[in-house]
């Protein structure tokens, strides 16, 4: 079949299948597409009507329920892409878990850290915002001072050029 990897007889480079098997596979793939399309449309409908459905705080920020719905539907779509389109569902168990496992561990850890830190910084928001405002005011004061300083400072350098 191929000049590569002749010492690896346990697998072939490609799954070859017949015309009939192909037909069934194509039908399945199109079904996945329709599912993804419906999920996306449902997402958009929920997005359009979030206000009416009472899923927004103060008419703008998403509620926890809305976040769970959207993230759940997204993960559903991700599952279909990875398992059906990328054929990870058809791979051997070893392969499946060495892809999904490390990624999931890192992601759960990262989300845990981020949520914790974001909550912390939200609790201390007033203190942190004050630091930013102070910095801005200080920048303005420095600019005032620096402006006058520059005018004085320019004279000797001009003298040097002359």
């Amino acid at each position: 079949m191929s000049e590569f990897h002749d010492d690896y007889p346990q697998y072939e480079f490609m799954a070859h299948h017949s015309e009939e098997a192909g037909k069934a596979k194509r039908r399945k793939l199109w079904n996945v597409f329709w599912i993804m399309l419906v999920v996306t449309i449902v997402e958009l409908i929920i997005g359009f009507n979030a206000k009416k459905l009472g899923l927004l705080h103060d008419d703008r920020t998403s509620t926890f329920t809305l976040k769970v719905i959207f993230i759940g539907l997204t993960i559903l779509k991700a599952f279909f892409i990875v398992y059906k389109f990328m054929h990870l569902g058809d791979e051997r168990k070893f392969m499946k878990y060495s892809i999904i496992g490390p990624y999931s561990i890192f992601i759960i850890y990262l989300v845990f850290i981020i949520v914790g830190e974001a909550n912390y910084s939200l609790i201390h928001k007033d203190k942190m915002d004050k630091i930013i405002v102070d910095q801005k005011e200080k920048a303005n004061r420095d600019a005032e001072k620096g402006h006058h300083g520059e005018e004085h400072g320019e004279e000797p350098s001009e003298g040097e050029h002359h």
Partner: peptide, 19 residues
């Protein structure tokens, strides 16, 4: 002497890159 993942070298590393 065999591929424990049952897939070719190229595909395994495409997957690892994607991760």
């Amino acid at each position: 002497g065999k591929s424990p993942f049952g897939v070719s070298y190229g595909k395994v590393f495409m997957w690892f890159f994607l991760v």
